[in-house]
Design a protein around this nucleic acid. Structure first.
Length: 147
DNA sequence: GCCAACGTTGGC
DNA sequence: GCCAACGTTGGC
């Protein structure tokens, strides 16, 4: 899952312990969130910042439920088309697990051929929520712990 | 700030 | 249903 650290970064999650992953307004990303199960682990990715990359791990603590920020006129992610009786947008709740020992930079992710096919590094990818295969997750965790 | 890539909107 | 115009994302 991607977030801009200037808006909400891994340190914010660490402080808050848990958070609603609200504001997702893309159908494909929403669908991936709907598929998430309690206990699923999440790589936390920092985007639009000096060193884009994977910075930590979070975990699903509550499965998809309506994103109330879509109904709030004053919210940046307000969507007048989302009907409270049949909400368009969903969110999951996540909790902080840990920060990685170091940032696994986008550059490093792209450079590793074992990660070919990883949605995050696919050209033109703009999804803020995407799946990670077990094999790719192992590689990323390996990069995080190797020297 | 630039720009490629993509998603959404709306006229037809 | 097509597609041009527009808006957004996000790396650089």
């Amino acid at each position: 899952m991607k977030s801009e650290p200037s808006e909400f970064g891994i340190d914010d999650l660490k402080t808050r312990k848990t958070a609603h992953w609200d504001g997702v307004r893309n159908y494909q990303a929403r669908n991936y969130m709907r598929d998430m199960k309690k206990g699923d682990r999440i790589f936390f990715y920092h985007s639009s910042c000096p060193e884009p990359g994977i910075v930590g791990i979070a975990q699903v603590v509550r499965e998809a439920h309506p994103d109330h920020t879509a109904f709030d006129r004053k919210n940046d992610h307000y969507d007048p088309k989302s009907d409270p009786d049949n909400p368009t947008w969903m969110m999951v709740d996540v909790k902080f697990v840990r920060k990685l020992g170091r940032v696994i930079s986008l550059e490093a992710l792209k450079a590793d051929s074992r990660l070919d096919g990883f949605a995050l590094t696919r050209r033109g990818n703009r999804l803020s929520v995407m799946p990670v295969s077990d094999a790719h997750a192992e590689v990323v965790l390996g990069l995080a712990s190797s020297r």
